[in-house]
Design a protein around this nucleic acid. Sequence first.
DNA 1: CTGTTAGCGCGTTCAT
DNA 2: ATGAACGCGCTAACAG
Lengths: 345, 345
Amino acid sequence: MKDTKLPTIKEIAKQLNVSVSTVSRALHDHPGIGLRTRMRVQQLAQQLNYEPNQTAIFFKQRRTFTIGVVIPNLKEEFFSQAIDGIEETASSNKYSVLISQSKDDLERERRIITTLKNNRVDGIIVSLSKQTTTYDHFTALKKYNIPVVFFDRVPSLPDFNKVYSNMNSGTREAIEFLIEKGHRRIGVLNGPEQMRSSKERTETYKQILIKRRLKIDMGLVAHTDLTRESTWKAMQDLLSQRPRPTAIVAINDYIALDAMQYARQQRLKINKDICFVSYANLPITSYLENPPMASVEQYPYDQGAQAAGMLINILSEEEKPTRPDEPETFQNIVINGQLIIHGKR
Amino acid sequence: MKDTKLPTIKEIAKQLNVSVSTVSRALHDHPGIGLRTRMRVQQLAQQLNYEPNQTAIFFKQRRTFTIGVVIPNLKEEFFSQAIDGIEETASSNKYSVLISQSKDDLERERRIITTLKNNRVDGIIVSLSKQTTTYDHFTALKKYNIPVVFFDRVPSLPDFNKVYSNMNSGTREAIEFLIEKGHRRIGVLNGPEQMRSSKERTETYKQILIKRRLKIDMGLVAHTDLTRESTWKAMQDLLSQRPRPTAIVAINDYIALDAMQYARQQRLKINKDICFVSYANLPITSYLENPPMASVEQYPYDQGAQAAGMLINILSEEEKPTRPDEPETFQNIVINGQLIIHGKR
DNA sequence: CTGTTAGCGCGTTCAT
DNA sequence: ATGAACGCGCTAACAG
């Protein structure tokens, strides 16, 4: 009962006194196989519970119908939702998904890429580690014909396939929303200064204030390194400005929550003394007594699904006959972050 | 530059005028290979960027160093945290992780199992779909020597490897905690009646009240099918009891949050008019203005890590010589759900 | 110490 | 309509 040998086409062939190739063809409904023998083969296969050995097929076909995924971590809901989207579109296209976490460690990211390559995944989806600023371990994959699609945390260079969300429109919507609500002193609780998205956010902020002819006060732009302590410190700065800001745009929901805690400690009433708008739109916010007034949704599930779709698309393009050295092209999907206004409850 | 052939041991062998087996051995630091040739081989391998073709190895070795994981979904934080734990211990043992979602659909679960089997994963970790009440698709795996470890949603039968949390002790702690806080009318917002854990919870509840010589009122035990509507309905029942319960034990954090919303709508002050204790301890609760007073932590990350550890352990046991038909044994790890008391803020 | 050889299971020519 | 034979890349048994 233990190592029962699994049935192989050879086994079937022997029992039926035909050749293995006949069996192989019959199982694939190859035209030009006697209806009669085909039936016999398929029936026996069924009866023996024959299932093709994928590892052999992978090996022979040089493809594995497997997509490798590299993300910084699975803890953040953003990423697990992205994986959800990836897994969903992958599996409905008969692909499997191999997952690894870089833990925001560049070395680990490199190792993972090597492993995935050796495992002969057909393609790779990546959201970069925070440390990553060089891309040689990805460009190297071209030699092996393994396409890569980045999402969310994408390289700034143009020559990669990417899916990411453009926060500019969302930021604009958010700030204009606040202005229309009557806010004139709007603070920005921004991320680390070196991050591109932080710079963009500040830039957008200034543009809008200028357009609306409101005074710009850079004291209202604070930065956090995303730790709670740092966020509180930044909040302290913001709240000490005079006149005090009446609304704050926070870089993401977690940060907003930390900021709101701080504000509450300072005896400020959320949504009354001070309003919050943030990015990401975590489901949890709907359970808060006083949630942020609005959030810029980044659609992680969609980003994942789109990335997987793009990759699978590229993979199936590859099957077609390669025309003589056509120039390499890169795909780019930009998802517009959109402002979701939360109903009062 | 396109389909550049990857270097193989054969290639290396040719260039060095040695046999492939010599190369293979040299690369594996096989004892009894001339230091000299070993060096030459390893150096050339390095130089050619040689990397073994894992698909060939998988095929030949009949193992893939891959663990299949089947969970109902990735949306719930509980599961993504479990995956996190699985991935972490798997990768530190050189295993990869192949993930699929059953979407609580039995048919899908079956198909996934078949696919994983054909992909020759070395073992499988499963958290059952809600629909699953038969286990033939799992028992069938024994024939293929693919061990299975269940976690969290485990079969009730004894002959499986499992990791799950025992909620009894946590339930007891929770209720006694409330009693000590002075509560005498404690409601239970329980899950579907047919669920084993629901029955256990009710049972434990009664036992404790008896032990503490408190009156048992089954009107204080309500059931929800986990939808928000159903939860609100159950809350309506509970709150209409007289005297009204002053505390409620909810089956999990999500349900507790729904229940708290309902209570708030009824103008009850959380943690004042009515207290909540729940299971799971989602990180979000720490951001609530009035979080549940306490939660029974179920340690999803640990459950995942333990399950992976158990599976890898079983896999490495298998390598050892099989003693003559020793009786099959099953491993069982029970994690005690533990009551975490949340600090007031 | 090293080479030769035989598969692993499958798909794929090339014959017939 | 079917079969024979080859090879994918690697490991391991068997020979020297």
